[in-house]
Design a protein around this nucleic acid. Structure first.
Length: 504
RNA sequence: UCCUUGAUAGCUCAGCUGGUUAGAGCGAGCGGCUGUUAACCGCUAGGUCGUUGGUUCGAGUCCAACUCAGGGAGCCA
């Protein structure tokens, strides 16, 4: 029996198999919070119901040891999950001595070193379940519409965009690169199957140390024959709506566990504002307001809010420290105060980080030069003004990839589209309509200084029955990060690979 | 690559302008108490202050270099 099935077993005696996620002990009574992967359940062991041997076995259980518990299921609204097990039998399975991940706060580095164990904690459990739901939802969305899933190669001989740094490997004595995108192969397959999507790992050797970069991440790259950029945007919006709806419908408990404010997801179920690059630039530079809000103005407001809060936090820390130092407190009270102080110090560190970064962002938004690509701070400025993702399209063709189609009415612009998530999360999707003209493509390949012979097969797609087609790439981890409201992508994937992090 | 912040007990942190034997909470071990929700109370153990060099009568504290880590820029999903 799994914990998530307990609703059908009230009043019955069942056996749960899992791990001790928490334990509290009293005289003649032991409370075990058992987790089995499907959920959490408090199990109560007393001498009366479990006998002397059962109670002793329960007392001997340590944090994260494994156990089989048999008992009567009762309903109890106060408990996590809503049920409780009154245990009659305790069979210890595997010991666990000095489990390193405690219930107290830990630092990032320590938790990352313990990632194999950290995954067992409640918050990580919830995030991984939401990630799973998002993956399922993506497959369902495309499969139901008749898209064919395809696998693009991981070893590639050519750089797709040529700009990002690649991981080089030795392929039987020849240099090969780990794929940074399956798109070009996706285009070939779309000419065979009509509409396809890839779902696989991609690799970028960027030495980025920011909250939104990984060296290895999973990307979903649909490619559709006979779709223009506007149909492409419809497809992106449909997919994102499907994901959000599914997560809201199936992951209520998980969202609650991680404390996600779902109103920000619900507001994303409307159609996304579609802005041209020109409009977006005006908003970033503060020349155009959105619903009465100014991009730079709201950031300045945020900075003031941060500084105000910083003063409050400093005052509260000082106040609590003075109270502890003045004596006369019970140990429990000091403990409580100390915990509060620890939390406040963490908040203080974050606020100080913000107060260093925000002025930089304001300056960079003010000094934004028309014609450039958006940076992380520009995305922050603009997305804070909307309560749903936004789509920015028609980019200056000079700053975008070689394969993007030019706007037929204004060749200075390329038919690319970026989807920026709200709350400062930034780019989660990049895509566009593809160039179909062989000569324009060749010119771009030369201009980007890419090896022409490596792209001959790709040019064949234009020589033999070229059709208008479009596609996009969704970064799975960035999607998970936004949906869960995480501070960093590293929590969105089981074992993150990033600059400086290869283990465990 | 650049800017910025940091490294003190198993974990999270304090240690002011250099000064005798480096502190707290959690965790661990032992004892007590309790249908408990990060329970509580008492006791015990636990440290080459990231590394190397320098300044000084004296360095956890000041200086330099290096290593590692957090955040940001660039680049990107």
């Amino acid at each position: 029996m799994y914990i998530e099935e307990l609703h059908s077993a009230v009043g019955k005696t069942v056996t749960l198999k899992g791990w001790v996620s928490n334990k509290r002990e009293g005289k003649g009574i032991v409370f075990i919070v058992l987790r089995d992967g499907s959920g959490y359940c408090q199990c109560v062991v007393t001498e009366e119901t479990a006998g002397t041997a059962g109670l002793e076995n329960a007392q001997g259980l340590s944090l994260e040891s494994s156990v089989e518990l048999t008992g009567l299921v009762i309903e109890d609204e106060k408990q996590i999950g809503g049920y409780e097990l009154q245990v009659s039998g305790v069979i210890p399975v595997g010991e666990s001595e000095n489990y390193p991940v405690s219930k107290k706060e830990h630092g990032v580095e320590f938790l990352m070193d313990q990632r194999h164990l950290w995954l067992r904690s409640t918050r990580q459990w919830a995030i991984m379940r939401i990630r799973n739901r998002i993956i399922y939802s993506i497959h369902q969305y495309f499969q139901e519409q008749g898209f064919v899933q395809m696998d693009a190669p991981i070893f590639t001989g050519n750089a797709c965009e040529g700009t990002s740094t690649l991981f080089e490997t030795d392929f039987y004595g020849e240099p090969a690169y780990l794929s940074q995108s399956g798109q070009l192969y996706g285009e070939a397959m779309a000419m065979a199957m009509g509409r396809i999507y890839t779902f696989g790992p991609t690799f970028r050797a960027e030495k980025s140390k920011t909250r939104r970069h990984l060296s290895e991440f999973w990307m979903i790259e649909p490619e559709m024959a006979f779709y223009d950029i506007f149909q492409n945007m419809d497809c992106i919006e449909g997919m994102l709506h499907a994901i959000i709806k599914d997560v809201l419908a199936h992951c209520a408990q998980e969202l609650k566990t991680i404390g996600r404010d779902i109103s920000l997801l619900e507001s994303s179920l409307t159609s996304f504002p579609r802005l041209t690059y020109d409009e977006a630039v005006r908003i970033i530079k503060g020349e155009q307001d959105v619903n009465g809000k100014n991009g730079i103005g709201s950031l300045e407001e945020e900075l003031r809010r941060v500084q105000l809060r910083l003063e409050e936090v400093n005052a509260e820390i000082a106040d609590r420290e003075t109270k502890i130092a003045s004596g006369g407190m019970k140990k429990g009270e000091i403990n409580f105060f100390q915990t509060k102080i620890d939390a406040l110090k963490q908040e203080k560190a974050d606020l100080e980080e913000d107060s260093r970064n925000i002025p930089q962002w304001i300056r960079s938004a003010r000094e934004f030069e028309y014609g450039n690509d958006f940076g992380g701070s520009d995305e922050t400025v603009i997305t804070r003004l909307f309560d749903s993702p936004i789509m920015v399209y028609d980019w200056p063709h000079a700053v975008k990839a070689f394969y993007l189609k030019r706007n037929p009415e204004n060749p200075d612009f390329a038919r690319g589209v970026d989807v920026l998530a709200p709350e400062g999360y930034g780019e989660i999707v990049g895509g566009g309509e593809r160039e179909t003209n062989v000569e324009l493509l060749k010119a771009k390949i030369t201009e980007h200084d890419l090896p022409m012979e490596a792209f001959e097969w790709y040019l064949d797609l234009r020589r033999f029955g070229a059709v208008p087609h479009s596609g996009f790439g969704l970064g799975l981890e960035r999607m998970v990060t936004w949906v869960c409201g995480l501070k960093h992508v590293r929590e969105s994937i089981p074992f993150p690979r990033m600059y400086g992090r290869l283990k465990p």
